[in-house]
Computed example of a mutant assay.
Amino acid sequence: MRPRPLFIENPEHDRYVSLVPDGDIEEILNKQQAKTLTLLGSVSEELASKTYAPGKWTLKEVIGHMTDSERVMSYRILAIARNEIAPLPAMDQDQYVSAANFNKLSWEQLLAGLDTVRSNTLSLISIIDEAAWVRKGTVMNSPVSVGTIVYGIVGHELHHMKVISDKYL
């Protein structure tokens, strides 16, 4: 079982890591994937194309954002695990969403993308050894460990799924 990060290097990361329950992180990631896809699989194309308030993202954009964020975080895991010493860049979520045109994609395509990205994340995590799990790199001018990023992936999805449940469904 992978250890939970004992020290969160940046308070920004803690807002997501603190949402993650105790337990085997790979099992949590697997269960989260199934739960999220089951819940979102019942959403209609029409509902997926709506916002809950003016100026907010559509549900399609939220899922696209979740997918892009996990892609970026998985890259960060890989880079840090492989001893990358160069600082890794930030991700401007609004810029990514506006450039992606998620609303032109079908709901089915977006869910398939989310599923594939999580499967790839799980594959990557399964080959990370203990030394790499605690290794730190620099993201957004702040140190962060591989383990913190993995827990951040789970917490980021938990955060957005709560927003989806509360505001969209």
Score class of each variant (00 low, 15 high):
113 G>C: 05
126 S>Q: 07
115 D>P: 06
110 L>C: 09
110 L>T: 03
104 K>M: 05
124 L>R: 01
122 L>M: 12
113 G>M: 14
104 K>Y: 06
97 V>M: 02
99 A>S: 13
95 Q>A: 05
99 A>G: 06
105 L>E: 14
106 S>A: 05
127 I>A: 10
101 N>A: 10
118 R>P: 14
106 S>I: 00
99 A>Y: 05
121 T>C: 09
116 T>Q: 13
115 D>W: 08
105 L>P: 02
116 T>F: 08
100 A>Y: 08
113 G>K: 02
115 D>K: 14
120 N>Q: 14
122 L>A: 06
120 N>M: 15
125 I>G: 05
101 N>I: 00
122 L>R: 15
97 V>N: 06
102 F>H: 11
102 F>M: 01
120 N>G: 15
98 S>L: 01
97 V>T: 13
118 R>L: 06
110 L>Y: 10
127 I>V: 12
124 L>N: 02
96 Y>R: 08
96 Y>V: 03
104 K>E: 10
100 A>S: 10
96 Y>W: 13
126 S>Y: 00
125 I>Y: 05
125 I>L: 14
117 V>Q: 06
127 I>M: 10
125 I>E: 03
121 T>Q: 08
116 T>H: 09
99 A>R: 07
115 D>E: 13
97 V>W: 07
126 S>G: 03
119 S>F: 02
94 D>V: 05
104 K>T: 06
100 A>D: 00
97 V>R: 05
106 S>D: 04
119 S>K: 15
95 Q>G: 05
99 A>W: 03
